[in-house]
Design a protein around this nucleic acid. Structure first.
Lengths: 249, 249
DNA sequence: CGACGTATTGATTAGGCTCAAATCCTGTGG
DNA sequence: CCACAGGATTTGAGCCTAATCAATACGTCG
């Protein structure tokens, strides 16, 4: 049986048709009707690397999906010491729900494509779509797990283990098309050495030294400072400082 | 106008009447009816310090409210290095929603009072109560902010700053009755020196040294190894390694 | 009081930081 | 196409903070 659907609520907006956020991001929770309403007030932006998106404590009146590229979340101490506290890969949702002011600073690490929409519209949509709220809760829980994993890295791993863990993290997140269980990988680092050191709680000199060490050990190859090849992922994993063996859900 | 309410759905269960989780925890989102249904399948337990609640990767079939005391979330590397990745104070909700197996290990740090309920019942309740889901989302977002704050401490602060930050964290969380903006504070440390070092990514010797340093500097007083007095909170704050000045929401 | 676990203090070592210099990449203009 | 400028990265030397190893003191509980 074919039903003639209301034209206003049945079709997916052009903007969203091939969008990653609709396939694997929060927009996947929205029906065509909601999607259309959100798309009407959304805007896309291409942004250069190193651009501040959210200033610390600054009032933010929009939320954003990262459609491509990487955004870093940072926090700084008053004397300039800096720490990256989160990385947002596509198609992550970006923004601190229920707070007008972000507790952290957000900055593009690479060139990124963003899709932004007004905070008020989105928050109203959360209220009427339990599915959307559910998805936001799941993403937040995953971010929390990731942040806690980082705490282990920052608190207990050696410099070499931190750098190896970082490479593994990037390999698993940068290109979602790649099989997470692949035996080998190659990718462009989305962060400079300085950024990597701010993520790992090290200095750029130490990051550099550990990268050369991994290179001399044959674990990775590096071309043009940015492109990394990993022949054996399991070999890299062995440099990460093993978690207690367990199978996760 | 007074309305005669259905006796089955109007009254708050005795168990929940004076419960902190109903006042400031997730149960506050539930109406008397839902509360009654949950209370029927809930059970309270008093647990000693140092008891494992959730084994790493172990299947968990219940969720828990921490009604008093402190629970620590930990992760270990295979060679024994350990990191505390989260502390749950009353009346926090405890448990990894939507995952059967917890990615972290949970253990009581102090004596605690717990209120547990079956995972299935609670998850069904989330589905019908957007208010409950909202509250879980808010708690998760707060935990995420806290974890990221910890990342700054672990990645960029000195040993002294870490210990001072930890004392501040405890002072602000241990006794919810105390004004968070109070000028002074005193409290019992819920963690041993070894636990504190696992939280701060240090050794117990270093923690001990920094505590004596703060004591000799007159920032804190310590009695019986556990009881800490802070005369001037702002004095303690100055030892924490300042965040870039901003006002938060 | 004695014993055990917890915490403090001391001496030494080592991993990563700092400061400094050299090298490599990228992009630009002649 | 090549030379050059500027930033990013690598490499080196020395130092410093926190770890390690070891011994002593404290506190609690039987």
């Amino acid at each position: 049986m074919t039903v003639q659907q209301d034209i206003h609520s049945s079709s997916i907006p052009d903007l969203c048709l091939s969008c990653a956020a609709r396939h694997r991001g929060v927009c996947g929770a929205l029906d065509p009707d909601h999607l259309t309403r959100l798309a009407k007030v959304s805007s896309r932006h291409q942004v250069e690397p190193g651009v501040e998106l959210i200033g610390l404590g600054e009032a933010v009146d929009s939320y954003t999906n990262v459609l491509s590229g990487v955004v870093k979340l940072t926090s700084s101490l008053s004397d300039g010491r800096q720490q990256i506290v989160g990385l947002h890969f596509a198609p992550n949702f970006l923004g601190r729900l229920f707070k007008v002011k972000s507790p952290f600073h957000a900055e593009t690490a690479t060139a990124v494509l963003l899709c932004s929409f007004p905070r008020t519209v989105f928050e109203r949509m959360i209220k009427v779509s339990p599915e959307l709220e559910r998805r936001l809760l799941k993403q937040t829980l995953n971010e929390l797990d990731a942040a806690r994993e980082c705490m282990v890295t920052l608190g207990r791993k050696t410099a070499l283990e931190r750098v190896a863990s970082f490479l593994l993290l990037i390999a698993r997140n940068i290109d979602s098309s790649v099989d997470p269980a692949a035996k080998s990988a190659c990718f462009d680092l989305p962060l400079t050495r300085a950024d990597i050191s701010d993520f790992l709680g090290l200095t750029n000199e130490t990051v550099s030294r550990q990268l050369t060490r991994l290179r001399l050990d044959g674990v990775i190859r590096i071309e043009n400072n940015r492109h990394v090849s990993v022949d054996s992922m399991s070999r890299l994993e062995r440099r990460c400082g093993g978690r207690h063996a367990t199978t996760f859900e």
